[in-house]
Computed example of a mutant assay.
Amino acid sequence: MAEKQRSEILETLSTVMWAIGIALVLRTFLFQPFHIPSGSMLPGLMKGDYIITSKYSVGYGRFAAAPIPFPVKEGRFLERGPKRGDVVVFRPEGISDNYIKRLIGLPGDEVQMIDGKVYINGVAVEQTAEPATPFRYFDTSNIERNINVHKNVETQANGKSYVVFDSVSNNRLDNTPVIRVPEGHYFMLGDNRDGSNDSRVKVRNGGAGLVPSTNIIGKAEIVLLSVDNDFALFKPWTWFNMRGNRFFKRIK
């Protein structure tokens, strides 16, 4: 009887270990989920979104298997450079948190903000303005706010289009010097341009800085689901507080 119990325990442990191993492989080489904690990527991504990123679409850098170090010190294994306009998850240099922003500047580009518009190599990125509309959101302090925002449809030269927010006139980040993107780095912007500390802000000042290629984790593909601000994992009565229009929503 004892031998049978021992055999069953070993079989169960083996099954669990196999399951963990398969999950780690999938997470490292194929897909990884992330949670959106802020409104820096409004309107496309909202606080409370749970997203899925693909790893194989951009290759594997040193944080591909975090917290386990991936054996890459520079560059990326099987690198497939992300494209301008892609939404990517990454870690700023020297920071342990994951960020999500939109890739705007490629290695060798010169990027500048002038009056809230993006210029790449001296050429303005095409924008189509829409009228100001009210928008309700929760800020980083979980305070509900209502703001009037201008929505601008931004279109890159490669045809990639997405919507960005402009909520504050003459914001401190609406005008920047020319920033040259060095080789092996990328320039990132949040879609909520007045509420994002991104590559316009150096890491030591609380921003993302210029992001090394090896620090990119994955490309954001879909919103799996989205929860309201009062959702709490350990409060079962809040489990149905989800946004019904955001299940399996493709990230543009």
Score class of each variant (00 low, 15 high):
R172P: 07
R136N: 08
E154L: 02
D115H: 13
A132E: 15
I222Q: 08
K151I: 08
I179C: 04
T128K: 15
D198C: 04
V203T: 09
N170L: 05
G159W: 10
K160D: 07
E144I: 13
L233D: 10
M188N: 12
N192K: 03
V201C: 03
T214K: 09
I114P: 14
I104V: 14
A232T: 05
T140R: 13
H150F: 09
T155A: 02
G108I: 13
F138Q: 14
V153Y: 12
K219I: 01
E130D: 11
N197I: 01
P212C: 02
G206Q: 07
V149G: 03
A220S: 02
R204A: 09
Y162M: 07
V178Y: 05
N215I: 08
G209N: 03
I216S: 04
V227C: 14
G195M: 11
G105W: 07
I217L: 11
K117P: 08
V118L: 06
V203L: 02
V211I: 11
V201F: 04
V163S: 05
L225H: 11
I179D: 05
Q127C: 08
N229A: 15
D228V: 00
G218K: 03
S169I: 07
E183S: 12
G105S: 09
R136D: 06
F138V: 15
N215L: 06
G206E: 09
F231N: 15
A132D: 12
A124T: 15
I114R: 13
A232P: 00
I104H: 06
I147H: 01
R180A: 10
N170F: 05
D139L: 14
N146P: 00
P182K: 01
V153T: 15
G206M: 05
T128F: 10
I179S: 07
Q112W: 04
S213H: 07
D115C: 13
V164M: 00
T176H: 05
I222P: 00
D115I: 05
R172L: 10
G108R: 15
R136W: 03
P177Q: 12
G207M: 05
V203E: 08
P212Y: 02
M188C: 12
N175T: 12
N175D: 15
P107F: 11
L233G: 09
G184I: 01
S169D: 14
G108H: 14
K235V: 12
G116K: 10
N192I: 02
A208V: 02
H185N: 10
K219M: 04
D194V: 02
K202A: 08
P107V: 12
A220D: 00
